[in-house]
Simulated assay, not measured.
Amino acid sequence: MNTSKIKRSPGRPKREEHDATIDQTILRTASQLFMDYGYEAVSLQQIAKACGITKASIYYHFESKAKLFTTSVTSMLNLAKMHTLRIMEQDKPLYDRLEQLAEVKLAKPHGDFEMIMREARPTLSAEQLQLIISAEENIHDVLIDSFQQSMDTGEIRPGNALFLAHTFASLITIGNKEITSSLGNLSHNLIELFWNGMK
């Protein structure tokens, strides 16, 4: 029997190699729009238009806005963790690493993440919410480890590494709302304030 002429049953189209690229384009675009304008203000149609694809294409890759938001935000947070780890693992004084990290994080100001999460929360499942929370905590864990190591070596005085990590993150959030200072001055001023507080 010649099986070459047997037609495949209709169903979901075979996933093409370029689908992975489309996924990344959608995630990158969606995360930028969500961070710039918030959850409620951004529609799937806007994301599709920015990507140069149809809304149906987004639904092909992501079943809902909540799913797209969760995946895009966790991907963004995982990337932020990698950048944070790369900077904090350098063989430099803690002050210099923190200042470099502040410069990187302030280079791309965005909306208030807490406000964005408040908007999105009612539409997210418990599992989706936990994924985002865990991804954010992973970044704090990098900072916690760095502060604890500096305490152990005597570079900074003993204290609560978790508190320092959240305080640093809060200062960066405030810095993202600052519009009057130059980037260099702003990151330096924030680290000076934070560093003197630790001392």
Rank of each mutant, 00 (worst) to 15 (best):
T173V: 14
N185M: 12
L190V: 15
E192W: 01
A161R: 02
S187I: 14
K177T: 15
I191M: 06
F163P: 00
S182A: 06
F168C: 07
L162G: 01
T167I: 10
N160L: 05
S181Y: 12
L190D: 07
L183M: 10
L171G: 02
G154E: 03
F163D: 08
L162K: 08
H166S: 08
T167S: 10
I172N: 03
S182L: 08
G159K: 02
L171D: 02
A169I: 09
N185A: 13
I172F: 04
S170N: 08
T167V: 11
I179C: 06
E192Y: 01
G159Y: 05
H188N: 11
L193H: 04
N160R: 04
N189W: 01
N176V: 05
E155V: 12
T167K: 03
E155K: 04
H166V: 13
G175N: 08
S182T: 15
A161F: 01
L164Y: 07
H188W: 05
G184L: 09
T167F: 03
N189F: 03
H166E: 13
E155R: 04
L193A: 13
L164N: 04
H166Y: 04
L183E: 09
H188D: 03
P158F: 00
S170R: 07
I174Y: 03
G175A: 08
I172D: 04
N185C: 10
I191R: 01
E192M: 13
T180L: 14
L186Y: 02
F163I: 15
I179R: 10
I179G: 02
N160A: 07
G154I: 09
N176C: 11
L164K: 05
F168E: 07
F163Q: 10
A165I: 13
G154P: 01
N160P: 01
S182V: 13
L183Q: 14
E178L: 05
K177W: 03
N189P: 00
L193K: 06
G154V: 11
I156M: 05
T173E: 09
L190F: 03
I172A: 05
G154Y: 01
S170P: 00
I179A: 10
A165V: 14
G154K: 02
I179S: 11
S182D: 15
H166M: 12
I156R: 02
G159R: 01
I156N: 05
I156E: 04
S187C: 11
H188A: 15
G154N: 04
A169K: 07
L171F: 15
N176A: 02
P158W: 00
K177Q: 14
E178A: 13
L186M: 11
S181M: 13
S170H: 06
T173A: 14
T167E: 02
K177E: 13
L190P: 00
I156P: 00
E192R: 10
S181C: 13
L193R: 06
N160D: 15
H166F: 04
S170I: 07
L190W: 01
S170D: 10
L193D: 00
E178P: 00
I172M: 12
A161S: 15
T173K: 06
E155H: 03
L193F: 08
A161K: 03
H188M: 14
L183P: 00
S187N: 08
L171N: 03
T173D: 09
R157A: 14
F163R: 08
N189K: 07
I191H: 02
E178Q: 14
I174C: 06
K177F: 07
L186N: 14
A169E: 09
L164T: 08
N189C: 11
I191L: 11
